[in-house]
Amino acid sequence: MTTATATAPVRTYRDYDRPLWQRLLLTREMAIIALLVIVAIVATATVRGFGQPITFTYLILDVTPILLIALPMTLIMITGEIDLSVASIVGLSSVLTGVLTQAGVPFEAAIVVALVAGAIAGAVNGFLVTVVGLPSLAVTIGTLALYRGLAVGLLGTTAVTDFPDFWTDLAKMKLGGSNVPAVLLLFLALLVVFVVLLHFTPFGRGIYAIGLSKSAAHFSGVHVERTKFLLFVMSGTIAALAGIYYTLRFGSARGDNATGLELQVIAAVVLGGVSVFGGRGAIHGVIAGVLLIGILASALRLANVTSDVINIITGVLLVASVVSNSFLAWLRTRRRAPGGTARARASAAG
């Protein structure tokens, strides 16, 4: 096909309006990664015992559930939704594993049941959000209570502590004499899956489009509801997986396992640069966000700072990151071109 006007000169287009180094380095994700490195160096230098290999091992064991759950949470939040029921699904999966094992079901079968239950719990969230059309915030606050209630109801206030040694050892196993926990491999495998899914597939492109403009995505043939439904199922399944890990690591299945974990996950995801309004964020930032919170907490604990103070510091960090995010966005729109926000300018152009 020829050009629409014959008189105009042929245009050439650059792929990007900024050079490569700027695109790589001047991002919110890089800022968090830089902060992470600085905090790690300062902690190693100043906190006694932080540089020890055992600290690293415990750090990984501690943050693994958060890392796991943060992966699907990132995708859900980029679509503009949220899943607050994840920690309750962790508890439910933990209890199911425990109760079934106690009842004599082979542990392997119990794991499968727990994972399926997690998927179903996620599917219930997804159904209420996409088919019934309720806001995910309300839906998952409800199922947060519901799933936690089911978990506590099933097991009461007791705990199941009798699990096959093979599996409890596996959860804490280190890779061939090193201090690297084997569970890191599980996370890395899922990390690769989610990075590819979000950043290198048509499905992932759809996720961003949904978060930025649901209606434009719909008009472009993106399966908005189906995508969200699938993400909630993924979130439930991964939360159940985290629940199994949680049970094995502490050798204890309890109804109140991981209570409040959802807030830690969401805090880390937001700190990692995912916009609470959807449409923005990347996995590497989220990983840095999780590790930053984890390292900070671990270093401060070693320095005998009480957990209240650690919470305060984490909270301040989170608020600061959200504020700086809006501030940077404001700066960017001012610098870019004819004033106002992108939306305001667009409406002026129409």
Binding site: A4, R11, Y13, Y16, D17, A342, R343, A346
Partner: peptide
């Protein structure tokens, strides 16, 4: 690149945010 040049979209880079273009270019 193919479609921007066929339709002569007035922008320098493909990474330009669509909302910053004029109505005609959008």
């Amino acid at each position: 690149k193919v479609w921007a040049s066929r339709l002569e979209v007035k922008t320098n880079a493909l990474s330009t945010i669509a909302g910053t273009l004029s109505g005609g270019n959008q």
